[in-house]
Amino acid sequence: MMPKRAMRWLILVAVCASSARAQTIDDGIMMPKRTLSAGVLYAHDSWDHYWEGTLKRTNGNIGTLTTQSVTWVGGYAVTDRLGLMASLPYIRTHASQGVLHDLSGLQDLMLAAKFKLLSTGPGRYGMFSVLAAATGAIPTSNYTPDFYPLSIGTAGRRATGHVTMKFHSNSTWFANASAAYMWCANVRLNRNSYYTDGQLYLTNQVVMPNVLDYTLTAGIDRGNWRIPVSLVQQRTLGGGDIRRQDMPFVSNRMDFVKLDGGVMYALPGNLSINLGAAHVLSGRNVGQSTTFTSGLFYALHL
């Protein structure tokens, strides 16, 4: 049992790390206590259409924007109810057309603590649990947030609170509902003026809007297999639209609805692999990206 449960927890980290903006720790699963885990995740994300505000378009000076990342993830279950985790991605961006330079670098270290607040069962229909998590993200290199869409991140500190409700039936299916609220610190640019949201700002500081995320997940969990499908909605609580034929800006109102699916399989020897795919269905000031992820994880019970 132990490896499988550990694997589930790792999957959740992987889902989190694969998202463009630090995502929820929302699968509702805890590793058994004193489990140490580590893994590597590769993600390939690309888009050729994006939303300039609400206008969907292509851009000859971008072509296809590809973002590849390799993310280290690690975790430790302090108790059955408390897990700690960390992740750190290396990211590279590339535009297939035009003259803009690639960017690459170590992005943000994410640290998280996750609690199981309460749980029931197994009852007549299944188990129900509620989890809460807090995450913090901090940039680990001085990458630039001022070259969107090629910037590898917002280069700002963020803190997120998550709540997840989980129901796991007595048969093989499960369902989760999560919400997360992300507080974003101001971002600093290398220039003393910028124009966004209908106003000229004469400062190098940018107020970043906070972000709400909702995730609904349903899936199957049977034997060594776990197959979740999620609908993710990100709502940015402020920020301006990309102006007509302007470059995107770090504090733009970046909203999207994304369908995200995965397959996780537990291998012998405490290893597990996961494969995932996601596609943005609708958005605002974001690319209509398609993302493929693959990860390999290892868990060790101390």
Partner: peptide, 23 residues
């Protein structure tokens, strides 16, 4: 350990409070 984790998150959250820009 729990407190350490919470304090890390809180420290990061505190950095998120500098919303007004200027001068």
């Amino acid at each position: 350990v729990l407190l350490a984790a919470i304090s890390v998150a809180a420290a990061l959250a505190a950095g998120g409070c500098d919303k007004s820009v200027g001068p």
